[in-house]
Amino acid sequence: MANLTINGKSITVDVEPDTPLLWAIRENVGLTGTKYGCGIAQCGACTVHIDGVAIRSCGVAVSEAEGKQITTIEGLANGGTLHRVQQAWIAHDVPQCGYCQSGMIMAVAALLKEKPKPTDADIDDAITNICRCGTFQQVREAIHTIANA
């Protein structure tokens, strides 16, 4: 059993303490926007926020996430208003297949919180998610659009 706080809601999940947070979120909580890509914290498709910091949830045990604020892609919007990263993603038509984009958006949202006007070098350092379709150009443009808004 683990008590998790996900998108502001307290949820008890019946899992072993070493279960990766990713799988608890997807299978036990039922929020499937957070994606499995590698399971070894390489690709970033499973990125969520833990206490506001972008973390690859496949590498975090639920026991480590207890008592912390977890935000998934489903909790990024403020009620009916999409987060500005989501809005920019739509305006720039960033996703291709879209599978990596939940993680990409979560990573970018965390970056912008820390650095509201990131340089290209800041983006290069902070955004290390894999996108096999190759949306990097639109990702970069969308980030700059938000920063310059």
């Binding site: 929020l31 990024l76 739509i90 038509d93 996703p95 879209g98 939940s102």
Partner: peptide
Amino acid sequence: QRLDTADKTTG
């Protein structure tokens, strides 16, 4: 714009 973008930004 693509027809399938919005849902890809919200999970």
